[in-house]
Amino acid sequence: MTTSVTKAVIPVAGLGTRVLPASKAIPKEMMPVVDKPVIQYVIEEAIAAGITDIVLVTRSGKSSIEDHFDCHYELEAELERKGKEAILASVRDIMPAGVSITAVRQNKALGLGHAVLCAAPIIGDSDFAVLLPDMLINCHGQEKTDLQTMVESYQKSQHGQIMVEPVPMEHVDRYGVVDCSGATVLPGQAADIAQMVEKPPRDEAPSNLTINGRYILPARIMEILKDTKPGAGGEIQLTDAMVDFLKEGTLQAFHMQGKTYDCGNKAGYLQANVIYGLQNSETAESFKAFIKTLAL
């Protein structure tokens, strides 16, 4: 029977050390790209792909993320009183009907695999998506987002999907790299993964396709994570669980078509603001004119 994926885990318990001091008091996920916090773009991406149940894996000091997606009656009433209908709609319509957000705590920073495992009681026996909240996938001009197409690939194959993006070979040692046994994986297509290698030396990398923070994983991963021992950095790594899963099942690499912006570091965050600012109807014209005045 063909199944879809309607549940997603978004781990937001990180400290945001790469964007300090901005993230000292403000969660890095709430830092704005143009006029919306990063986390809103990610949740909108999930909803557009058919996700209806979102699990935030959080910690103390991150309540502003949950507050952002809650109702703000006083603000809405004041905007309505002043007749600011467009702004009111942008605030009121953040969460569409039929979509729920649940928060669970990760009490100790024990790695991405541990964060995902914290959501196990809610995910249950369902296949599920994982979206890293500091990675923005820009699909401007595409008919569908990459996550939508990846969900379709999952529905067709019923195999877990890992979104990948090509990088220059000289940079492969910075990322997790997939080995598809030499198969050519075109943008918008998927191929079976033979193995995954974490930060391989350039001359040992099986490809230049790197994992970029979007996954659709079989429910079995949760069971494997329960027995996954601490790996790199003394943390429970999601990659280690996926490697173990490959011994018994199939995962596929889905080659994205868009562009990733890592808002978890300062350079990526600035790049995202430039690109999204140039694509925003309110800011594009004046921003483009400003950029032209810069003597870089």
Rank of each mutant, 00 (worst) to 15 (best):
G98R: 06
E204L: 12
K292Q: 12
I137F: 13
F128V: 10
I101M: 08
F290K: 05
L296H: 11
T293C: 05
I43T: 04
L75R: 15
M95G: 06
S157M: 10
E282K: 08
L20V: 01
L132F: 11
M31F: 07
M135S: 08
P187W: 04
Q271L: 09
K247D: 08
G14A: 07
G258Q: 03
T52R: 13
K156T: 10
Q158F: 11
V19T: 09
L147F: 15
L186I: 08
A86T: 11
K259T: 14
D127H: 14
Q252A: 12
A253Y: 03
Y269F: 09
V12Y: 01
M30D: 05
G233A: 09
A115D: 04
D262L: 07
P37V: 01
F69N: 06
G111I: 00
R18C: 01
A89G: 09
Q257F: 12
G213M: 12
K259D: 14
L278K: 08
P121D: 08
D70E: 14
A232D: 15
M31I: 13
Q237P: 03
G264Q: 01
P133M: 02
I123A: 07
K199P: 08
N107K: 13
I47N: 04
F128R: 06
E66D: 12
L136W: 10
E152L: 14
A272M: 03
G176C: 10
G264H: 01
I211Y: 07
I211W: 05
T184H: 02
I224P: 02
V12R: 04
H171D: 09
K229A: 14
P166M: 01
R59S: 15
S153P: 12
D203P: 00
P166H: 02
G83S: 11
K144S: 12
K156R: 12
A86K: 09
D146A: 14
A103N: 08
A119H: 09
